[in-house]
Design a protein around this nucleic acid. Structure first.
Lengths: 221, 221
DNA sequence: AATTATTTTTAGATTAATCTAAACTCTATT
DNA sequence: AATAGAGTTTAGATTAATCTAAAAATAATT
């Protein structure tokens, strides 16, 4: 696998995400949309990536990422997410202000740097948005953590962590008796304010605001 | 000051260093040597940098960095040195393996990131090589720390820190009674093994090996 | 001072990444 | 099945950064 340019890495990452982890075919326009470039530019780049063996490409048929391409994409994603953890846990950024900076940091080339960073951060398994961090071989072991407010009515899940870990929010969770590990079933989503009615551990029904649901990270059952 | 490209930042940094902090004129060939490019490429880039007002340029006369250019160069140098401190102090790299990585990290754009990093590192004044870190305005307040073995015979200086802070080296310094703050005058440099004979606090003469002198950081009197 | 040698610049190409405009292919609809 | 519309690719340019080879200017040496 030859060295890829920064732009090539970004294309591969986009294709990986758009294809749902590499399984589906991706069309030219969707790549252009995501990368805010024009379809003509995508066609050019697609040919280059196909020449390097990172994607399979048949004209007018869309592209599919190869095993090699997937591996490269996952390494970039791994770096992105580790840097996000660094920015939030060590430098005190909020989780919604780190994406742009991580987009730059993800292209730094040094395998040793990344393994040391991983160790320094305590080998985290999720980034601050709840997305899983691939290991050095590109393996994603854990189920993704999802924000409660993004799930549809009827879903059953388990509370695994919070995005805002400020004491006022933790106090609130304590008060409503919603600790980590609680089983949550979404019973209703109110239309007028998006507050959520949940069944906790199958025994007690409570309602939390949209703002609270935005801060709860859960794993689907 | 418009946004500069990565290559432009590297040229400015090279010109800053070659000119001894911006004071002297710099010629085309020396820039080419330093950046491992050809003089023709340097001529092209010089015109671009002059157009942007970061350097003053008269054909065949060499270039001189402007105040604006100097400010940009110092910001890049600040980032480079802060990242070096991070790599050594936080990730456990040795001071002689961080340059290449810092060359990449110095181009990350985010003023907030740098001020947070500075704070996280405890507002360090020197990088792991002993070079001073400019502040956010580009001001270098402190005299540079220099490796003892690079100074000529006859120099008087003060010991301010070490590069290798392993316990075996600190034990050695303890044993020969050479604490931080000692005044050192170089009395002789042995030709056959580069060991150094020094006068400590004007009262006691001892000899240290080249290996030891390589690890002592001093400030000139 | 004239000529040689060195340094620097220009001219003309190349690679990477992008664009607009035009041509082409596929799909969906009549 | 023909065709209109959407999606995709090619053709031809542009910008940034680099190169080689040749020309021009400065510096050094006889």
């Amino acid at each position: 696998m030859e060295e890829l340019t920064l732009a090539e890495e970004n294309y591969l990452k986009a294709i990986y995400h758009l294809s749902g982890g590499g399984s589906e075919h991706v069309n030219t326009n969707s790549i252009a949309d995501r990368l805010k470039t024009k379809p003509a530019s995508v066609s050019d780049m697609i040919r280059k990536l196909a020449d390097k063996g990172t994607i399979d490409y048949v004209k007018y048929q869309g592209v599919q990422i190869t095993e090699g391409g997937k591996s490269t994409a996952l390494q970039v994603i791994r770096k992105h997410r580790l840097w996000e953890v660094f920015l939030v846990d060590k430098l005190g950024f909020h989780w919604d202000e780190v994406h742009e900076i991580a987009e730059q940091l993800e292209h730094i080339r040094s395998p040793l740097l990344i393994s040391r960073l991983d160790e320094f951060l305590g080998f985290p398994k999720f980034d601050p948005h709840g997305d899983p961090i691939p290991d050095e071989f590109g393996v994603i072991s854990s189920k993704p953590r999802i924000i409660l407010s993004t799930l549809p009515n009827g879903t059953t899940c388990t509370l695994v962590s919070m995005r805002d870990t400020g004491s006022s929010f933790l106090n609130y969770l304590d008060r409503i008796q919603l600790p980590i590990g609680s089983e949550i079933r979404i019973q209703a989503i109110m239309e007028f304010d998006n507050s959520v009615e949940i069944m906790v551990n199958g025994s007690r029904s409570i309602t939390v605001s949209k703002q609270v649901a935005d801060n709860l990270l859960v794993v689907k059952k």
